[in-house]
Design a binder for these strands. Structure first.
Length: 114
DNA sequence: GCATTGACTCTAG
DNA sequence: CCTAGAGCCAATG
């Protein structure tokens, strides 16, 4: 009988690995990270994981929503922190406070056009 | 183990 | 292009 798949790490770990794989000066969307995790519809799950692993060595600030906007709770001051960190990473912001996804959109290289 | 919440995304207007 | 509503997934109590 098939063993309980020992090579199936939890989603959390996969999200951590995906986010950690994001190079400096680049940003990825929750849906992109979720897709790499195996669930393209688990965009919310990614946020849930990040909120619980933010204390780890995880560049959570490189993760933005599909519009490139920072959907992080501002009451914790994290929104300003993320924007500051991204600006320090050489990431540009739009006048609306959104990241230039056309310029910093990170991809896994699995489905790269061009 | 069920119910609620939340750093999302999609479709429709 | 922006707003509104519904759906999906995972974490937490």
């Amino acid at each position: 009988m098939p063993k309980p798949s020992p090579s199936s790490p939890p989603f959390s770990e996969r999200v951590i690995a995906a986010v950690r794989s994001i190079p400096e000066g680049c940003v990825a969307t929750y849906g992109e990270v979720a897709a790499v995790c195996g669930s393209p519809r688990a965009a919310r799950g990614v946020g849930a994981v990040l909120s619980g692993r933010m204390e780890a060595d995880l560049p959570w600030w490189r993760v933005v929503n599909r519009s490139g906007a920072l959907t992080i709770p501002s009451h914790l001051g994290l929104r300003s922190l993320q924007r500051t960190l991204l600006e320090k990473e050489d990431v540009g912001f739009d006048v609306d406070g959104r990241v230039d996804l056309s310029r910093h959109r990170w991809t896994t290289g699995a489905d790269e056009v061009d």
